[in-house]
């Protein structure tokens, strides 16, 4: 019974309708009592002014829920439309967008995240990030979410200093990297209840990181090849001295370690 009551009174509109009905009922009973019982039995009369006030109160009690209903339903529809629009907007982005609260509970998970992680929005929403990613271990993301929600300060989490914040395995095996390299921003968003959530935007920078490392490796290889004679493999020109010094210092270091 209690459950039914709390369920029925969940929306402000229903509360207003219920209160309006009770007030109108009480007023109707009072007027009936006054008009049909008290006034005929006693010499008590009600002035026109009092009747006008009673009429006005009745009108307000009747009209208010209708007005409220019209405005509230309109607002609710607009809000639902806005929420749907926001959801669709984040789904069109070529980046991961997720919305989390201070407990790391996911409130929104866009299509990009679904594709890259294999976790559907239904599975992700309501779960903690730590439940979704067993290997989650990013103190930087935790402090960024904390700063973002408590102090409304957006945070940048670079790939250079962090590599990644969410351990998302790569589907492609075209390079040595096993996990997606990420550039992340965390920004605050306050909802209609005044609760601040953190919007985490994830850019996949794996390809550019892999390309940079491949180019760097190629450059190193080309440099070493250009310093060697193609036929004999011996170091050439000024690099001969440089290479000899480098190799001899390496050999000395190994020898010193062996002696120690």
């Amino acid at each position: 019974m209690k459950r039914w009551k709390s369920g029925w009174f969940r929306t402000p509109l229903r509360i207003v309708v219920a209160v309006g009905a009770v007030v109108f009922g009480v007023e109707f009973l009072f007027m009936a009592l006054l008009h049909d019982v008290i006034m005929p039995l006693t010499s008590f009369t009600v002035s026109d002014t009092i009747w006008s006030i009673i009429d006005a109160v009745t009108l307000v009690v009747l009209v208010s829920p209708v007005l409220y209903f019209l405005v509230f339903v309109r607002m609710q529809r607009d809000f639902a439309e806005l929420t749907r629009f926001f959801a669709e907007l984040t789904d069109t982005l070529m980046m991961g967008v997720l919305l989390v609260d201070t407990d790391l509970r996911v409130h929104r998970w866009n299509q990009w995240m679904e594709r890259k992680t294999g976790i559907s929005s239904q599975q992700a929403c309501g779960k903690l990030l730590t439940e979704l990613f067993a290997d989650f271990n990013s103190p930087r993301l935790l402090s960024a979410i904390d700063l973002c929600i408590k102090h409304k300060s957006p945070q940048l989490i670079s790939q250079t200093l962090n590599r990644y914040v969410l351990p998302i395995p790569l589907l492609s095996t075209m390079h040595d990297l096993k996990l997606m390299q990420q550039q992340v921003s965390v920004a605050p968003l306050t909802n209609s209840r005044g609760e601040t959530l953190a919007v985490i935007s994830i850019n996949d920078v794996t390809e550019s990181v892999a390309k940079s490392s491949a180019l760097a490796r190629l450059a190193t290889k080309m440099e070493s090849q250009s310093n060697r004679d193609q036929l004999t493999g011996a170091l050439t020109g000024i690099f001969c001295g440089h290479g000899w010094r480098r190799n001899s210092s390496k050999a000395c270091a190994i020898a010193r370690r062996s002696v120690a």
Partner: peptide
Amino acid sequence: EVGEDDLRGIEHEAMMEIGNIIITS
């Protein structure tokens, strides 16, 4: 590991995150 051309981007990115943490805190 990174080529010369990417150094600048890395420096900017790293400095921006370090600065972000210092300013915010």
